[in-house]
Design a protein around this nucleic acid. Sequence first.
DNA 1: CATACCGGTTGCATCATACAACCGGTGCTG
DNA 2: CAGCACCGGTTGTATGATGCAACCGGTATG
Lengths: 165, 165
Amino acid sequence: MTEKRSGCPINLSLEVIGDKWSLLVIRDMTFGNRRYFRELLTGSEEGIASNILADRLQRLTEAGIISRAPDPSHKQKVIYSLAEPGIQLVPVMAALGSWGRRHLPVSRELSIRAELLERGGPAMWERFMDELRELHLGQPRPDGAGSVLAELTEAYLAEIARAER
Amino acid sequence: MTEKRSGCPINLSLEVIGDKWSLLVIRDMTFGNRRYFRELLTGSEEGIASNILADRLQRLTEAGIISRAPDPSHKQKVIYSLAEPGIQLVPVMAALGSWGRRHLPVSRELSIRAELLERGGPAMWERFMDELRELHLGQPRPDGAGSVLAELTEAYLAEIARAER
DNA sequence: CATACCGGTTGCATCATACAACCGGTGCTG
DNA sequence: CAGCACCGGTTGTATGATGCAACCGGTATG
């Protein structure tokens, strides 16, 4: 799809990430810190097929949303990172998560992160994006800044533990 | 698609509006105030096919995002309205528009509204959603509240005029 | 030296989308 | 009251996207 249907920002966004899998891949990279093909393939509940995952990783790479690099520690491994446009999808995912949490039959464990992101607001999203810039782009950030990712992950794990009890 | 892939709010949102047309239909209803089948069919630049439009209107209705009612003024006409969940997609579209405007080759005329929505922030979105509740749900709102829709439309038309000059 | 893991690829079935042509009923106009 | 444009779709067909399972050669590990 090279020819664009229109120059509308919403339309163009949909042409790039308007399908059922792209944002889930980005979600897993963002909130699950999954960086390798196998992690993305087997790590999430939705069960993406390997050919679809390969296709999405290629498209997102070509669109400049993520980047692909060989892993120095293992000749065969490839590490995927969020590029700056991918990092800036945090507010989109936050908005989509808030909406879904309100209007759809979400599970408690999987929606706790959306709830925290909603309560934290844009200030929290910015801190999170700075953290992602450090993790994925190697951009240093001031010491002492807490980890939003750890905060979200801990809350998620606590909900899992509560559910099992 | 009745069986859900997971209870994640982002995933569930994508299962409902994660395709290339649903959000465009909602966009046209929201920002273009298009309420009839033909308006939606012929009004936008992207050129949706009539069977796809019919399918999306039906799905969105079944999902409770929009509603469908006969038009009293014309026996054959059907009027589509945003339901509350549809109105609450405003922040999602604003986020998606901001992102697209930054990272994709948008046209100036079609991105002015995204720019204004971004600058206006959540306060403006709330005013806009109140206005949509009046237009689509008949919920009265305080007099003297300005029209965000008119503001956005005027800015858009001004950009069109500038482009033609 | 065997085994598990690495990022994918291939073939095939099925589902969604795209395009154009068409439908019967309704309202407006001359 | 005849003709015509418009109403919300439907139908058929072609093409593309997706889903599924099996498989690939190269690589690290015990």
